[in-house]
């Protein structure tokens, strides 16, 4: 399990990253925390010509609040965001979900942006971004665009990112007063990818439920707490469908959407 050969650049500015991507596009891979990419390289499931390491690009390592948005640089490590003092007040859902991302050791290295670009349908951070209605900034030599989570996640490991683009910023909406958040995950073991992950935001009589691990991407739906909730969850479970795999059946996943979804929305409501 050794990677195939590639060139390597440790970029120090965003501009360098964009130039290299513009020149190489298909042959270039951006290396951030490497907690997924390096494993894939070791297994030779990817054989890029050039790795561009963005972890030393200071511009991509900032966490800052801009109005109603928490802007997280793509190369911010998961552990750094988790340790950021205002996290629990600013984006409570992310504060709840981050401890479920991988393990202590992988969070030390894994980045927020890397997890989103990888777009594992069972991963927690894509689910949070989608549930909060957040967005990402994609940049290339050609353009800079802001893409909402709904458009960004397009399927298993598949996003709207074009080959010459790099994700530079993650925009997380700051929690509004009165909003309440809930997060539940069922995994085989602690730290595994979710069999089913659920994230909820409830504000007044409005509620949103995000589901990871069932469909091919995180899916968020508006839910109405009340008499029809069980039926709405049933419809959502069927819509998501799910797949059988070695660890759980599709039926099981759908049932957790119904039952845990109900519990989560009920307990998140004031």
């Amino acid at each position: 399990m050794k990677p195939a050969p590639f060139d390597y650049v440790r970029a120090t500015t965003r501009d360098e990253v964009l130039t290299l991507l513009a020149e190489g596009s298909e042959q270039v891979r951006v290396l951030a925390g490497g907690q997924s990419l390096m494993a894939v390289l070791n297994m030779r499931f990817a054989q890029p010509g050039l790795l561009v390491d963005i972890t030393a690009v200071e511009e991509l390592r900032r966490i800052e609040r801009r109005g109603d948005t928490l802007v997280v640089g793509a190369a911010v490590r998961q552990a750094e965001l988790l340790a950021w003092p205002g996290l629990a007040e600013t984006v409570p859902l992310v504060a709840r979900a981050l401890p479920w991302v991988g393990h202590y050791q992988t969070r030390n290295r894994g980045t927020i942006g890397g997890s989103l670009v990888h777009a594992d349908p069972s991963a927690e951070l894509p689910l949070c971004l989608a549930t909060l209605g957040g967005s990402v900034v994609l940049e290339s030599r050609r353009r800079r665009r802001t893409v909402p989570a709904d458009d960004f996640f397009q399927g298993v490991l598949t996003t709207a990112r074009e080959p010459d683009e790099v994700l530079t910023e993650v925009h997380l909406p700051v929690a509004r007063p009165g909003s309440r958040f809930g997060f539940r995950e069922v995994a085989m073991r602690h730290g595994d990818f979710a069999l089913v992950a659920l994230a909820a935001e409830v504000r007044g009589d409005e509620a949103w439920l995000g589901v990871g691990g069932v469909a091919d991407r995180p899916v968020v739906r508006r839910m109405k707490p009340g008499a029809a909730l069980a039926d709405d969850l049933d419809a959502l479970a069927w819509e998501l469908g799910g797949e059988d795999d070695g660890h759980a059946s599709a039926r099981y996943r759908r049932q957790l959407v119904r039952e845990l979804g109900y519990t989560l929305l009920t307990e998140t409501a004031p």
């Binding site: 390597y8 440790r10 390096m38 050791q105 992988t106 290295r109």
Partner: peptide, 20 residues
Amino acid sequence: TVLIDGHACRACLTLAVQVD
């Protein structure tokens, strides 16, 4: 697992050139 700048990390998911 080794420490890189004091943080516990997987050496198998790190390139040697990255610790320069």
